[in-house]
Nucleic acid binder design. Structure first.
Lengths: 103, 103
DNA sequence: CAGACATATACGACGGCGGGAATATATGGG
DNA sequence: CCCATATATTCCCGCCGTCGTATATGTCTG
């Protein structure tokens, strides 16, 4: 279910913002080119998914990232990782040579 | 966009099946409790997202996993990883002690 | 070539999601 | 208490994704 929550670009943007530290709803609204109700709605989805925590501070609500669901996602990804990490060295070398050629 | 593609449980199931090796559409239909057209449609989505490759073999079409988009997902996840890996040792120790307590 | 088999596409129905506007709730200040 | 501020919730609507059924396309066999 974390996947469907992360499918929304606005929600990923919110997470990216929270990655660097807590924010109030208002700060997120300013940063997001979305209406305040829109932000609140996305925050609710993120809360329900356990991806963020809320802490009241006067009238403000301060949101913080909760990385646990992302860790689960990472765990889901784990068995696939060997499929590309095996060839990662070769790929990196390939990209490097492309960049080299572009210079 | 990979996120929305992976949001579908059936599609994740398909990827899980392909992780252990290539499969024909028929084999996937048998494994998936979905109609054949349903499987074909999901496969089209996976193809468009670059998550699978097709190879014709007589009347069959053999599908194989393409891990590149998953590697991108892994890259997206990377900056978040430190948020839980920092506490991973402590968490593991905690889980270990819980298991210890249960024994 | 005909018919069977394997897969893909088209179509119609339906439900859920995201967005905006309006409104409700909660908190602080005078 | 009343008002301003900050946030959440509700309602309505349009759209997109998914499903099933039916049908088209492609390929092998005899």
């Amino acid at each position: 279910m974390t996947f469907s929550v992360l499918a929304e670009p606005a929600r990923r943007e919110i997470l990216d913002l929270l990655r660097t530290g807590e924010r109030s709803v208002g700060q997120l609204v300013d940063a997001l080119a979305l209406s305040q109700p829109g932000v609140s709605k996305h925050l609710k989805v993120l809360r329900d998914a356990g991806l963020v925590d809320v802490r009241p501070e006067a009238q403000r609500r301060i949101y913080a990232l909760r990385p646990e669901p992302l860790a689960e996602l990472d765990a889901w990804l784990a068995p696939y990782r060997r499929l590309w990490s095996e060839r990662l060295d070769a790929l990196e070398r390939h990209l490097d040579s492309e960049q080299e050629a572009a210079t």
